[in-house]
């Protein structure tokens, strides 16, 4: 009897010790992960910060003799992002609405879902490869912003469809039922009731996806090209000119692609430019993240306060 009590005590103190050790180990892991995140971001900002803040870096073209910069790449990145969003947001909205509201419970729907899932798991280089043949050659667009934007759209659609779908499904069912019970169509219900209620989450999702699109490069190398563009901002409305910043049929080089190109074909001093560009890219992406959070908070506060 006495030995049993003794061994039970032993057991209790053992499992308590085990519990403490496990908690300790987990705490250390979490601490290290957070340290890693801080270290990565801080390192990049410090390493490339000076270059990024050098006068001219953000305003000079990369071919400039003195103080080469990244202004064309910056422009191309944002312009391509906007073209991508213009294409991908409506398609994703439509697809998400179909899947949430209309999708009949049959093989067509499950095939469509599988297609979107497949798209989400495809390596971006495969998307780029497909784009280099389909958009560039088959459709005859050539290496161009529009081909790049279409490749990015393929990359972006699964992400967007999922977030929009989630946002629509998170609107209470009762809202939807109430509108349908007044004899309204699913279309009217979605446009007038569900979308406004889901808007904060949708906007957050779009901005977050924009951050990912902004940093994507593999899908672009063979679709929009990797040669730094030469733009002429003095004559922005000659849409067929290869130097027109708005021409969607001209090649373009985004920040991310520019980094890749400089690392694969290094030249004198390119390391510093790489770090500077990486810093600018990182800051842009972090700003997108921040913007997504702020916009989401602002919109949902406005919705509930109204």
């Amino acid at each position: 009897m006495a030995s049993q009590v003794h061994s039970l005590d032993d057991h209790v103190s053992r499992i308590n010790r085990q519990d403490k050790v496990a908690t300790g180990v987990l705490t250390v892991i979490v601490g290290l992960v957070m340290l890693l995140v801080v270290a990565i971001i801080a390192y990049i900002l410090v390493r490339g910060g000076t270059r990024a803040l050098t006068p001219g870096f953000l305003t000079n073209p990369s071919a400039a003799e003195e103080a080469p910069g990244i202004v064309y790449q910056l422009w191309d990145s944002f312009y391509m992002l906007i073209v991508t969003l213009v294409i991908s947001v409506p398609i994703s909205l439509g697809a998400a609405i179909f899947l949430v509201e209309y999708a009949p419970d049959n093989w067509v729907t499950s095939a469509a879902k599988t297609a979107i899932e497949t798209l989400s798991s495809l390596p971006s280089i495969v998307v780029g490869m497909f784009g280099s043949l389909f958009f560039v050659v088959t459709l005859g667009w050539g290496i161009s912003i529009i081909a790049g934007a279409c490749a990015l759209t393929m990359f972006n659609i699964p992400i967007l469809v999922r977030t929009i779908q989630q946002a629509l499904e998170d609107v209470p069912r009762s809202q939807r039922d109430a509108a349908l019970a007044m004899g309204l169509t699913r279309w009217e219900t979605t446009i007038n009731v569900l979308l406004p209620a889901a808007m904060p989450a949708i906007v957050t999702g779009i901005v977050l996806s924009a951050g990912r699109v902004f940093g994507e490069a593999a899908a672009l190398i063979f679709t929009s090209g990797s040669a730094p563009a030469r733009l002429n901002f003095a004559n922005p409305f000659n849409f067929v000119s290869p130097t027109c910043p708005f021409n969607i049929f001209r090649p373009a080089c985004s920040l991310a692609v520019y980094i890749w190109r400089l690392t694969s074909e290094p030249t004198d001093g390119s390391v510093e430019i790489v770090w500077g560009t990486a810093t600018v890219l990182l800051v842009c992406v972090l700003l997108f993240n921040l913007l997504a959070r702020l916009l989401g908070k602002f919109l949902s506060r406005r919705l509930t306060a109204e």
């Binding site: 209470p172 009762s174 809202q175 039922d177 109430a178 509108a179 349908l180 019970a181 007044m182 004899g183 309204l184 169509t185 007038n192 009731v193 406004p196 209620a197 919705l303 109204e306």
Partner: peptide, 22 residues
Amino acid sequence: NLFELRKSIGMVFQQPTPFRKS
């Protein structure tokens, strides 16, 4: 025609379901 029918048979639900409008 569901839409015609539901115009004349209205429904009020368990939870109040005002829309996010005035």
